[in-house]
Design a protein around this nucleic acid. Sequence first.
RNA 1: GGAGAAUUCGCCUAGUGGCCUAUGGCGCGCGCUUGGAAAGCGCGUUGAGUGCAAGCUCUCGGGGGUUCGAAUCCCCCAUUCUCCGCCA
Length: 423
Amino acid sequence: MIDPALLRENPDAIKASQRARGADESLVDDAAKADVAWRKALLEFENLRAEQNAASKLVASAPKEEKAALVASMQELSDRVKAADAAASQAQVELDEVLWKIENVVVDGVPVGGEDDYVVLREVGTKPAFDFEARDHVALGELLDVIDIERGAKISGSRFYFLKGWGARLELALMNMALDQASAAGFTALITPTLVRPEIMAGTGFLGSHADEIYYLPADELYLTGTSEVALAGYHRDEIVDLSEGPVRYAGWSTCYRREAGSHGRDTRGILRVHQFNKLEMFSYCDPADAEAEHARLLAWQEEMLQKCELPYRVIDVAAGDLGSSAARKFDAEAWVPTQGTYRELTSTSNCTTFQARRLNVRYRRDEGKTATLATLNGTLATTRWLVAILENHQQADGSVRIPVALRPYLGGTEFITPKVRA
RNA sequence: GGAGAAUUCGCCUAGUGGCCUAUGGCGCGCGCUUGGAAAGCGCGUUGAGUGCAAGCUCUCGGGGGUUCGAAUCCCCCAUUCUCCGCCA
């Protein structure tokens, strides 16, 4: 939710942001109107309630024989209080309805436009030049017996798979390397619940336009999360978080579930787009004044991981129209996928400023002791999808795959996965 | 699955319709005292909304109801604990 104070002080800033996103600008005027109406209704109710409270004290202290008359005279006031209360509640509902529709105010400098209007910030690493016919990760997965897509489909349908042998070990190695790096940077490891209640799903902003992307278990009224961000953001719901020692950071590991309802026919081959995968997610609670700096730190940690995996990648500054509603800015790091001749997203990091925290009521104490809404940020540190880039970029002519040096300690020192070796 | 008990400020706790603008303790903060500390004493210590402000309003797990008036009575929901049953 946007900051109501900003709505009163500088509605034009919100309008400019909506414009940059290609979103509805008129919502801002609607919200301002609803805000005025709500405050008026609230004042009316509070004045009547004050009157009632005062009169109620008289009844309490009145002699018995006068009570009946006093009580009778207060019934009409009581009705008016009830009506005013209902009107104020209704006005607040109407205000919230509009406020929740307005997306987060983008950070200055975010590229204007839609999906294709991203700005490439940098390209890092050298794309591999193969002097043989490169195999894609599906072919490599079969050859090395590390990814079993056929049997995944047999037991669960399309977009499911088994990671097998060195494939399973490679993913665990990747996650462990990421967790070690995160722990060294001060993140607390969390293995999170993947089934959450509706209000948590709504509070994190995932039940909006993308609700059909989410698995739902009606018998239990629980949602399967598509990212541990949901649990990590909900973790401190309704709490005052101690930020006196700097940002509070969590590295959340979980399996992620996505229906991929709107992507029929896209990335149907392999494990690039699947219904179930694992992810280690960074999540940071911090002082809003520090949020942009923290965003840069999250991106730096992501790049460190990509470099340790010896992957060529580029970083893009995602355009306003392609941001999620909670994000004020988003950087994606995309790794080169040789057989597709293009970059594919491996990590994404969003600065949600106070937008998400306001919905979930997460605050911190400022130096003066006052409470204020804090900022939340998130970013991918490793996912199953990384295996695609690792397998394809490090493949050799004979179909074996070279393990990046930094990952080897997590695989018992193994340097190559070869077609003959089994885990 | 069944039965019962509970949920009050960071923690523990008092409170059975109006004197609750919620008790007491622990902890924490400030001060007095002290050579310094402990003890002791005094003051403060849930948050939120609105308003320029004084103030007013809300907040006793959440929501609804009864009532002139609800921490207190009723209903629904959540969570925790205990017992019984069933299962690994």
